[in-house]
């Protein structure tokens, strides 16, 4: 994937991410419509491909208003990934073609890779994750399960042990996929399914779209490194 193709693919996917997020604010809380209508309008412009650099700069400036409004990201890690993608994209489009531009976009790819690896590493050093107890706690009393029925999964320790180790091993092994194009495609497909499962079980829908939008960066980085 060429750098220009990857940048444009990221612009399109990021515009869809921001449109989805903006819709949730605009239609749910009238008081937040005023804040998110400009983001929706700018996202439509980004989607159309008209003057991407001024649009990205405007979206970046607007993101500061949103961060101040909620005293941080509204939706934790998913909003952080969306904004990181926006800032890397903006910087890449601002810099002249060459290694600086590649560095800005490559930083996003490295962060995608780290997002999986660090998540796996902090879990695997925790005895509660290795025994399956941590995931049991998530289902038993955390705020995440989307329905009361899902809490019954806390009573299935063997299944949760298997799920815990599957997640940890996948997250830890993710960087290895960078060494082969087919492995990376397979790893990204599994990762997307993982985010989809998190959306269904824990209601983390914004993570699906935010991470998908960052995938072109890692596909480009692999192409760039392996030739």
């Amino acid at each position: 994937m060429s750098l220009e193709t990857a940048l444009r693919a990221t612009e399109v996917l990021l515009a869809l991410v921001f449109l989805q997020q903006s819709a949730e604010h605009i239609f749910h809380r009238r008081g937040e419509a005023l804040l998110f209508a400009p983001r929706a309008a700018l996202s439509l412009l980004l989607l159309s491909g008209i003057a991407p650099l001024p649009v990205l700069l405007a979206l970046s400036a607007h993101s500061l208003l949103v961060l101040h409004r909620f005293s941080g990201p509204y939706n934790g890690g998913s909003d952080r990934m969306g904004l990181l993608t926006l800032y890397c994209l903006t910087l890449a489009q601002t810099l002249p073609p060459g290694s600086a531009r590649e560095g800005a976009f490559g930083y996003l790819a490295v962060q995608v890779l780290l997002s999986y690896f660090i998540s796996g590493q902090v879990k695997v050093i925790n005895p509660d994750w290795r025994s399956g107890r941590a995931l049991q706690d998530v289902f038993a009393f955390s705020a995440y399960p989307v329905s009361e029925d899902l809490r019954s999964l806390a009573a299935r320790p063997r299944l949760l042990w298997l799920m815990s180790w599957s997640v940890m091993l996948f997250e830890l092994a993710f960087p290895v996929a960078l060494f082969h194009p087919t492995a990376l495609i397979a790893a990204l497909a599994v990762a997307a399914l993982f985010h989809l499962a998190n959306a269904c079980l824990f209601g983390l829908n914004r993570f699906v779209w935010a991470w998908l939008a960052a995938y072109p960066s890692i596909l480009w980085l692999q192409d760039r490194l392996l030739g």
């Binding site: 989805q20 949730e24 809380r29 009361e148 699906v208």
Partner: peptide, 24 residues
């Protein structure tokens, strides 16, 4: 949280889940 969510409701929430994200 509701007692139960159907697969169709889960799918819909993939695209629009304003109330849940507000709860988070």
């Amino acid at each position: 949280r509701p007692q139960r969510l159907s697969p169709a409701q889960m799918l819909r929430r993939l695209f629009y889940s304003a109330a849940w994200n507000e709860a988070l």
